[in-house]
Design a protein around this nucleic acid. Structure first.
Length: 511
RNA sequence: GUCCCCAUCGUCUAGCCUGGUCCAGGACACCGGCCUUUCACGCCGGCGACAGGGGUUCAAAUCCCCUUGGGGACGCCA
């Protein structure tokens, strides 16, 4: 990893800062935040407290899922606490359906939370309190500039080759609250706000780059940066792993925290997930919602394995079980450069997980996909056996369900290409001979099914292919099937014989 | 435009902090072979990268600078 000097040391230093943190408790109590404090066990002992704070404006996308995963993994690995917080201060765009979609996504991935879900809309009193205090102490001020005026300021700045910003017009006007006024945070004019990022190292942003951003809208609601800072503080979050796109928000949050006289958490900014064209991953690149991958037949464990390895590494290891991930996750090995989401590799990892997991587990996971495919399975044991034969040749559960179909439904159509080759008139003799030989087998299991083939081959003086290919097509309807003996065992004697009859009739009908 | 961040095979990455063991390792994909009753699995092999340029050094993928390229942010969104 491209680690800037002394990163590990710094993380340790920042962590120890949280070991004896009674000070923050005192201050919090003084300002009456106590009613909002989240009670976590042992946070005074330096426990890692992480959080995932989605805004409910859509489904859970893969980038968000990865951030959630990293925070969850870190909390689980260290025996810390993982908090779920719904950032719904945007009353316009937040929806109940999105909240549910996010829950669904997290549940599917097996990411559970210890605290929450907390909703920011239920904490407006707290934010108001903080804003009042900030106002009182001169860290914030009322602003009556209209959106049009502000747009003008931005234009002016742009024309001067500067970053478009609010120009601080109301900063020293000492206005009081009036209808339609907003509250702005007073950002220091000089200096810079810097922090030690867990993944990127030291990041420093000149305060002059920031403008006096709004912390309370004209309708009285708090804005994102204010709410986040207050929440992270009162929830005692001490480790924040989040997307790269938040780097520019970090100084704002730090400034608010410092104005409140509080210590700041440790931040770690994870690079974005990109599409194949290296642009930020979006819908035009394909599926971006984690539940779409569920629908495609990806195993949740494979998904988190893939997501974890996209931007994080543990030497050369590629395959991780869930337990492995928890045991080995280490934020020190989060990479600094953005990564391209590669569905091919996800499929490959999924394939590995399908092969590694016990057939019983895969069978259980397969059930909903069979149902969706309209495939009825009466015998669960038979299904488990079928799964064993299908696992090495399935990349997704959807594919596996489809490949399983021939076991449980009769053959509707023989693959025309194969039929042309294997269903020649001569095949009838082979099929009939096989029927006779198989009918004589008492124990219809894989190990007892080889002998009848050899008997027939000798009798008819033909090679294996001449016997096996017509039979394969007869019982599976296709030229690509699981191994012959295992397949016949799953099918069972009765069904096998019936399908041979059907095939013979089919060939004879062809004339 | 301004600021911030990033830069190893097509892709995910190891190595970089603590320079030499790296004419750069693994995985996906691709190509070839083996195995084989099909399709797969598996195994073996191949292709393929330190963005460019300057330094520093006996020695640089590793440290420094510049250039180029990419990404992000610049909202009464989060």
């Amino acid at each position: 990893m491209r680690t800037s000097g002394g990163k590990k040391k710094l993380i340790a230093a920042v962590c120890s800062q949280w070991l004896p943190c009674p000070a923050s408790d005192c201050r919090v109590n003084q300002t009456n935040y106590h009613s909002f404090l989240i009670h976590t066990t042992g946070d005074a002992m330096g426990e890692i407290i992480t959080r995932f704070p989605p805004s409910p404006t859509g489904y859970l996308h893969v980038g968000g899922a990865r951030t959630a995963l990293f925070n969850w993994l870190y909390a689980r690995k260290t025996g810390g606490t993982f908090i779920l917080r719904i950032e719904d201060t945007d009353l316009e765009r937040s929806t109940e359906a999105s909240v549910q979609a996010i829950f669904d996504g997290l549940e599917w991935l097996g990411i559970d939370w210890d605290q929450g879900p907390f909703y920011q809309t239920q904490r407006f009193d707290l934010y108001k309190e903080v804003i009042a205090k900030l106002l009182e102490e001169g860290h914030a001020y009322w602003c009556t500039c209209t959106p049009e005026e502000i747009e003008e300021m931005r234009e002016t700045a742009r024309a001067n080759g500067e970053k478009p910003k609010y120009n601080g017009k109301c900063r020293e006007r000492h206005l009081g609250p009036t209808e339609g006024a907003v509250v702005r945070f007073k950002v220091p004019l000089a200096g810079a706000t810097a922090f030690e990022d867990m993944v990127k190292g030291r990041i420093s942003i000149p305060n002059a780059e920031l403008d006096d951003f709004i912390i309370q809208r004209s309708d009285g609601s708090p804005t994102y940066n204010l709410a986040v800072a207050v929440d992270d503080l009162t929830m005692k979050v001490n480790t924040i792993l989040r997307g790269d796109d938040h780097v520019n928000n970090t100084p704002k949050q730090i400034l608010i925290l410092q104005a409140m006289g509080e210590t700041v958490p440790t931040y770690g900014h994870v690079p974005m997930v990109l599409g194949s064209d290296k642009a930020r991953l979006s819908k035009r690149h394909g599926a971006t919602s984690v539940t779409e991958y569920r629908d495609m037949g990806i195993l949740p464990d494979a998904m988190i394995n893939y997501l974890a390895r996209l931007g994080w590494s543990c030497g050369d290891q590629e395959f991780f079980t869930r337990e492995d991930l928890i045991e080995k996750f280490n934020p020190d090995h989060i990479g600094r450069s953005p990564g391209v989401f590669d569905q091919e590799k996800l499929l490959a990892i999924n394939h590995d997980h399908i092969q590694q997991k016990p057939a019983e587990e895969i069978t259980e996971a397969l059930l909903p996909y069979l149902e969706k495919a309209g495939i009825q399975v009466a015998d669960r044991d038979q299904l488990v056996k079928a799964v064993k034969t299908l696992a090495p040749r399935s990349h997704t559960l959807v594919e596996m369900a489809e490949n399983a179909r021939f076991y449980f439904e009769g053959i509707k159509e023989y693959d025309p290409k194969m039929a042309k080759k294997a269903f020649k008139p001569a095949a009838v003799d082979a099929l009939l001979a096989m029927k006779e030989a198989l009918a004589a087998v008492d124990e219809f299991t894989e190990s007892h099914l080889e002998a009848p083939f050899h008997a027939v081959m000798e009798k008819l003086e033909v090679g294996f292919g001449k016997v096996a290919q017509p039979l394969r097509l007869a019982v599976s309807g296709t030229g690509a099937s699981p191994g012959m003996y295992e397949m016949l065992e799953v099918l069972g004697k009765e069904e096998t014989l019936k399908r041979i009859d059907d095939a013979v009739a089919h060939i004879r009908a062809l004339g």
